[in-house]
Amino acid sequence: MKKALLVTASLIALGATAPAVAADLAARPYTKAPPMVAAVYDWTGFYIGANGGWGSSRNSWDSVPPAFLVGPEGAHDATGGTIGGQVGYRWQAGTFVFGLEAQGNWADFSGSNLSQVFANSRNHTNVDAFGLFTGQVGYAVNNVLLYVKGGAAVTSNEYRISNLAGATIGVTGDDTRWGATVGAGLEYAFAPNWSVGVEYNHLFMQDRTYTFTTPGGAFLGTDRISQDVDLVTARLNYKFGGPAVARY
Rank of each mutant, 00 (worst) to 15 (best):
V64E: 03
Y41P: 05
G170P: 09
A67I: 06
A167E: 12
T8P: 00
L69R: 04
Y139K: 07
F96M: 06
P34H: 08
S112K: 07
A18Y: 13
I169R: 02
A152P: 03
S121K: 06
R247N: 13
D228R: 10
A9F: 05
A218T: 10
G53H: 02
T209R: 10
L6R: 05
S56C: 02
I225S: 02
Y139T: 09
H202R: 11
Q227H: 02
K3I: 08
G104S: 00
K2I: 02
W43M: 11
G151F: 11
N126R: 10
A22N: 14
N163C: 08
R28T: 13
F118N: 04
A218E: 05
W43H: 09
P66F: 07
Q227Y: 01
V148M: 10
T82W: 00
F190R: 02
R122M: 12
S156V: 08
A26W: 11
T168K: 07
N163K: 09
K3N: 06
V144H: 08
I12R: 07
N157Q: 14
S156W: 09
A33G: 07
M1S: 05
A38Q: 15
T155V: 03
N201P: 01
A244L: 06
E158F: 12
Y238V: 14
A107T: 01
F219Q: 06
Y159I: 11
L14R: 12
T176F: 03
A184I: 04
Y30M: 12
A13R: 07
A246C: 13
S121Q: 12
A191Y: 01
T181A: 05
Q103Y: 00
A33M: 10
D24V: 12
